[in-house]
């Protein structure tokens, strides 16, 4: 009885994985093929939502929540806002007449690398361990004991990125008027 429940559980996981994979791959392909930037951004959004689902499927609950909050709530929304602010017209978008040709060419170029990556990843352990779910408690304990130096460095990095972004977009011509 218990075995049957496990099999059913595996089946359910496989179905969820397939649906999420379909979403992620189609989102990624829409992202790199569509001419309109906004459609690419929506493809990216779908991919990121699928990735959050994958994290949840992998029992990393905290990571799934962080993915939704940071990647979707901040990064994707920021890109959408920038795209809508720039609001490039159809004629202003880069002219790419040979887009699909280049895509096929670079796919052929990258296919061996993909294969190599997949094969080398397959040499790793191919069974999931029965570890307890990594809840926010476990992650937080690790983050503030072993990983405290990288954590602090990341905080400095974020501060620098914020300052850098402000300095980059500041108009240097405005300074002379002040």
């Amino acid at each position: 009885m218990a075995k049957r429940a496990v099999v059913q559980n595996n089946m359910l996981e496989l179905i969820i994985f397939s649906i999420l994979t379909l979403f992620m791959l189609s989102g990624a392909i829409v992202m790199i093929t569509s001419k309109q930037t906004l459609f690419s951004a929506f493809g990216f959004l779908i991919t990121m939502v699928g990735l959050a689902g994958m994290f949840a499927l992998l029992d990393s609950r905290f990571l799934a929540i962080a993915q939704i909050m940071v990647s979707i709530g901040a990064v994707v929304v920021l890109s959408l806002l920038t795209i809508l602010t720039i609001n490039a017209r159809e004629s202003n978008l880069p002219d790419e007449p040979n887009k699909y040709k280049w895509m096929v060419f670079s796919s052929l170029l990258i296919a061996p690398i993909t294969f190599l990556l997949y094969k080398s990843l397959l040499t790793l352990n191919s069974n999931f361990s029965d570890m307890p779910t990594s809840t926010s408690k476990v992650v937080g304990e690790l983050l503030f004991s072993q990983w405290v130096l990288p954590f602090e460095i990341v905080s400095i990095l974020l501060l620098t990125a914020m300052l850098g972004a402000i300095i980059i977009v500041k108009d240097p011509r405005k300074k002379e008027e002040v």
């Binding site: 992620m24 791959l25 990624a28 392909i29 992202m31 790199i32 930037t37 690419s40 951004a41 991919t47 890109s79 920038t82 795209i83 978008l93 880069p94 790419e96 887009k99 280049w102 895509m103 060419f105 670079s106 796919s107 170029l109 990258i110 296919a111 690398i113 993909t114 294969f115 990556l117 997949y118 990843l121």
Partner: peptide, 19 residues
Amino acid sequence: SLLFSIGLVGLLSRKNLFV
């Protein structure tokens, strides 16, 4: 592997900065 490769293909073949 597939996601990484799709990202690499997009990086190599597109001109749009956002993509």
